[in-house]
Design a protein around this nucleic acid. Structure first.
Lengths: 349, 349
DNA sequence: CTATATTTGTGTTTCGATACACCAATATCG
DNA sequence: CGATATTGGTGTATCGAAACACAAATATAG
């Protein structure tokens, strides 16, 4: 246990005042003799000094961190998301602080307050919750938020930026694809409809059916949540369970749309449980296009979200807000999804 | 943008000194009149005050955060890991700060120094790198580290705690299982052998073969890394590639052991690429037992790591170190792995 | 050779919370 | 009733870095 090295130690060693060291640290070198500069730099290197961020933050009020709150990184989609956000943040000199909210507004609020008390003034939320009122207080105090994968809602009263894929379109692409393949009874498997992106996807599904002149059959929409709360396995378990129930009906659907890839993988298992094969007996489409989509058997037909561009945009926006480079009205970016046809869907003609 | 509320504001409102508010905040209420206490509490509630952690940290030198550094949370294993660590940490009143190192010692060192300069004095490393010398400097300065999934090495000169599954045993269980099923040519698919856990697993594989009286065929050990660096997809891609190469040989193996579940899923795809079926044409065993293992088709026979207990132990150890409740020699916990037989392996008799 | 600029740093205060020595007011006791 | 405890707080210095006004040393001008 060695004592911390402070700016004072460096100053003493270089024979200058702490102020001078601070000046160098903050790039105010223009009025500094080259030899002084070099002396200070040597002292820093020799002592292995690195400034205490806490002290710096207390003084400046700025902290180069952004908060990232997702339902759970145990879900590979959010894992990949967090990973992309981190990469983009690091490039801009920011660290990320990650929290799992399990889509619980109360946990989300607590996390946000926690991060706030660490001086973090910008956060990205991936949970896509219907309301954002639990964050109103902090936003009014000056917190900047980017809602990820949650298109702005008419009812939103808060100035919150958003970056999202067009989820209505995503589900329309999936549904249209199946309709064109001749499917008429298409099941929709989702977890709790407590998020904007899910509602939008359902809307896209209904829209596509309507456009095609097919009556909506409520029986084909399966929505349920796990009793024992949220877990790592939520998506696949629900997908499995939903597929089993829908495919067990007398007049079973010939195709399923899963709310995301994890649900689709679960649906594969559910179909298998009933002795049905994908795509021969039932076509399955996912949404996300994560890394596993092309590896599973059969490779999953799914709708791609441009995750990389989306995260980059989200990070850019939040940093501009934090640094006060944007002050105006909330920005809302909507990206285009893309249908990726693989082997999990087949013609029903 | 509302001004921050400080302890002074609360004190003024309650008609006491900041010291008194601080005393309450830190539980020193024993010599405080109940009515004063109540007045201060009311002031805190009315103003919605929450203490500035930065200032507190600067004064106390303590910060209730632990660093968690993993190769990448985009890998579901580390996503689940991070999620478990977070849960355990929160229970103990700690936050986690997460970093992805992509197994690069230099990135790992930079991250560690970054976290150190934030006042973090305890970190959990999940990368299992062969050497830990890149962290020597910080450890000498007082950083506590738990190496996760990396059994202590004889050459380790640093006082670093560890929590790991017995990786040698894990691979032995997998190999024995296949041997008992009658397999004699068993391939081993792994990424770069630059981690302790991988080397240990390879050792377990070799050990089991030797014990069974089977000569080691180096041709059956496939080890490669991706050219274009580390990505979300590393595991599955390498597994796929490895399986394709091994199964493409004239005298191909009848079974494969994948270094982890992701590689195993890749191996499924690789076998499929060659028109081979699992387990009819080739048996596959993974290691980890993540959530997808029982969902994929066929459900994966794998070796379970008791992730939950392991992370809990790691968090307990690191917090005891940070709080100075343990000072002695490094602790090394080794947990027992468990073979989970599903449908991806079958008899070769 | 004095007056004014310019260069090159420095001293002091501050951020918000905490630790700790210390003080005022009241209670207790012989 | 004066001396001593006890109760219930408070004043002040401090953590490490940064901001900013200001000062010493040197250069330049007239």
């Amino acid at each position: 246990m060695v004592a911390e090295i402070t700016i004072q130690d460096v100053a003493r060693r270089a024979g200058v005042s702490p102020s001078t060291v601070s000046n160098l640290l903050n790039g105010r070198t223009e009025r500094m003799r080259p030899e002084t500069l070099e002396r200070v730099q040597r002292a820093i290197a020799q002592l292995g000094y690195s400034p205490n961020r806490t002290a710096r933050h207390l003084k400046t009020g700025r902290v180069e961190m952004i908060g990232v709150i997702v339902p759970s990184v145990a879900n590979p989609f959010y894992g990949a998301f967090a990973s992309h956000v981190e990469r983009a943040a690091l490039k801009a000199g920011y660290q990320i602080l990650l929290g799992n909210s399990e889509r619980d507004p109360e946990r989300e609020r607590r996390y946000a307050e926690e991060l706030w008390s660490h001086g973090i003034r910008g956060m990205i939320f991936g949970s896509s919750l219907l309301a954002l009122t639990h964050l109103a207080n902090l936003v009014e105090h000056g917190l900047s938020i980017v809602a990820f994968d949650r298109q702005a809602q008419a009812a939103d009263a808060l100035p919150i930026d958003s970056v999202s894929v067009d989820n209505v379109l995503a589900a329309r692409l999936a549904t249209d694809h199946l309709l064109k393949l001749g499917h008429r009874r298409i099941g929709f498997v989702t977890g709790p409809l407590r998020t904007v992106n899910r509602l939008n996807r359902l809307e896209g599904y209904e829209h596509a059916l309507r456009e095609f002149g097919i009556a909506l059959d409520r029986e084909l929409i399966w929505e349920k949540s796990l009793d024992q709360g949220f877990g790592d396995t939520e998506g696949v378990e629900l997908g499995r369970c939903g597929a089993r129930e829908l495919l067990g009906k007398p007049n079973r659907p010939t195709a399923l749309i899963a709310i995301n890839d994890m649900y689709a993988f679960g649906a594969y298992a559910g179909a298998r449980d009933l002795g049905l094969r994908v795509p021969t007996d039932v076509s399955v489409v996912g949404i996300d296009d994560g890394v596993l989509a092309e590896v599973v058997d059969p490779p999953l037909t799914t709708v791609r979200q441009p995750l990389c561009e989306m995260t980059q945009a989200a990070v850019d926006i939040i940093i501009r807000r934090i640094e006060g480079k944007t002050n105006g009205a909330p920005q809302h970016l909507t990206m285009k999804p893309e249908l990726i046809v693989r082997k999990s869907t087949t013609s029903n003609l």
